[in-house]
Design a protein around this nucleic acid. Structure first.
Length: 477
RNA sequence: UCCUUCUUAGCUCAGUUGGUUAGAGCAUCUGACUGUUAAUCAGAGGGUCCUAGGUUCGAGUCCUAGAGAGGGAGCCA
């Protein structure tokens, strides 16, 4: 008799075998039926207790959340809700769970409440499903790149460059409160700090990843990034995981191909490897949408949405075309937009992105060739002198899933751009070296992993797709 | 950071125009029942109505300030 997990037992094709397993009690009904879960699958296995021959003392300790070990015989179920069950011959309580104090009950809890119990929420159906999908997705990400000869590069988490302008940074220092040395002009003297200069937590591994692309050809990062922005939305975290491929000799078209193929590929892989969890999440979302007014419900179920994205081409539209579409759109003419579109050059607001994705094209959209003024310094300037080879992949409900660009490979153009945008050339000497020695066309993008998990699981709030969310005013656990 | 909504039992939520002792379902406890599917039935316990002021004969309800949370916006991935 070997210990098996619930997933293995539920797949078993022969009855009447002796099994033993360990797990946690989800519910205990009629003093007789334990719904046991061990995390290996969304499904529980029913363990049937011979309650007349089990001590009262033991029965009382079978409570929601308790850890138990059971031995018994796998048998065809006499009940309707499941095909197999375990006729228990031996039960041991491994860890009690006081029902008076245990916060997780066999009922619906709000996600807000569960967020405050993030250490226990993964014991619920929804969160265990989301976290298993997250894990499989993370594997699919590595698999996609590894199978295509990309090199995984671990870019530094502590960085000395504050040049990307991706957002406010968290400072990393060993100075104690009020003990930081001060320079003559009254500023904190970071030359005496641990690294001998001011350092922060990284906002992106892109610049470092470029150095690898310019040596190994294809590289990608997949690691934590940090933004000290005071943003309170369902799509932002202060600590999140970002996937950033970077490829030498690849232009913007290749970059768009890569982003689209990557997303489709990982979705296809998850549709196969997470069938049970996705089926549960699909139902959960459908149930949730029932409480919404008809107009706000989505036309497709979660699984339909995933298959739709995996099977259909993303719509590629230049910024200029997008502006035309928006300018002539009904909401713009009827002045329904909060920010009306009147001229070329304006940054698109999320209401505009949402119109393009959800109303006009009704599929993921890749916008490219943005005005240079509203994009970062390292993006390749087009021959028109006013647009850059940038691209954003926009998703329904999520907004910007991917932001990427062909990088400026010309030394002089890059230096001019940095000067114009007030970026210190001295600090990025190593980045400029890439353009000095063997420069080449190269491109890459950044994809927020949690947004991918959000889309895949149909979870509305990004705080519910990362184990322990870090947001303004919240770093519990 | 701005706008907006919310905060009542362990959880999810009712609570009318300001009016007596603040309710329900689930959970918990006690008992009954035992092939149940978030089991069922009977009973019991459980409240700083977010905090501090104010208006009023009287405040869960109205006003002011504060705290926390949700949603939207901005920034972005």
């Amino acid at each position: 008799m070997t210990t098996k997990n619930v997933a293995e037992i539920l797949k078993a094709d022969s009855f009447l075998q002796e099994v033993q397993l360990k797990g946690w009690v989800r519910t205990f009904r009629s003093n007789r039926f334990i719904a046991l879960n061990d995390g290996s699958t969304i499904n529980n296995i029913q363990c049937v207790i011979d309650f007349e021959n089990t001590p009262e003392e033991t029965l009382k300790r079978i409570t929601t959340g308790a850890a138990i070990a059971v031995k018994g015989t796998l048998a065809e179920s006499q009940g309707k809700g499941q095909s197999v069950e375990i006729q228990v011959s031996e039960i041991e309580i491994l860890g009690d769970s006081n029902p008076d104090e245990y916060p997780i009950q066999p009922k619906k809890h709000s996600f807000e409440f569960l967020r405050e119990n993030a250490h226990l929420r993964v014991r619920t159906n929804t969160f265990s499903a989301v976290m298993r999908v997250r894990s499989k997705l993370s594997f699919a990400v590595h698999q996609y790149f590894q199978e295509r000869d990309f090199n995984y590069v671990n870019t530094p988490i502590i960085t000395g460059t504050d040049a990307e302008g991706a957002g406010e940074m968290f400072r990393a220092t060993t100075f104690k409160d009020n003990e930081a040395p001060i320079t003559e002009d009254g500023k904190i003297d970071y030359s005496k700090d641990f690294f001998g200069k001011e350092t922060s937590l990284t906002v992106s591994g892109q610049l470092e990843a470029e150095t690898f692309a310019m040596a190994l050809g294809k590289a990608y990062t997949f690691g934590p990034t940090f933004r000290a922005e005071n943003s309170n939305t369902t799509r932002h975290l202060a600590e999140f995981w970002m996937i950033e491929p970077e490829v030498a000799f690849m232009d913007l078209d290749g970059n768009m191909d890569l982003a689209e193929d990557f997303i489709k590929s990982v979705l296809n892989s998850i549709l196969i490897s997470c069938k049970d969890d996705l089926a549960f999440l699909d139902q959960r979302l459908t149930q949730e949408e029932k409480s919404k007014p008809q107009a706000e419900r989505s036309e497709m179920s979660l699984l339909e949405k995933l298959r739709f994205v995996a099977d259909n081409n993303f719509k590629r539209v230049s910024y200029t075309e997008a502006i035309d579409i928006l300018r002539n759109s009904k909401p713009n003419k009827k002045k329904k937009f909060q920010f009306p579109i009147d001229q070329w050059g304006a940054d698109l607001q999320s209401e505009h992105e949402r119109y393009l994705v959800e109303k006009h094209f009704k599929c993921p959209v890749i916008l490219f060739d943005y005005p240079a003024d509203i994009k970062a310094f390292y993006m390749r300037l087009n021959d028109d002198g006013k647009t850059v080879r940038a691209m954003d992949v926009l998703f329904p409900g999520i907004g910007e899933m991917v932001g990427g660009a062909q990088r400026e490979e010309r030394y002089d153009v890059l230096v001019d751009k940095m000067k114009a945008m007030n970026i210190d050339e001295k600090e990025l000497w190593w980045y400029l070296d890439l353009r000095k020695f063997g420069t080449a066309v190269h491109s890459g993008f950044g994809l927020g992993f949690e947004r991918l998990v959000q889309f895949t699981t149909g979870m509305n709030n990004i705080r519910d797709v990362i184990p322990f969310p870090r947001t303004p005013q919240n770093a519990e656990f």
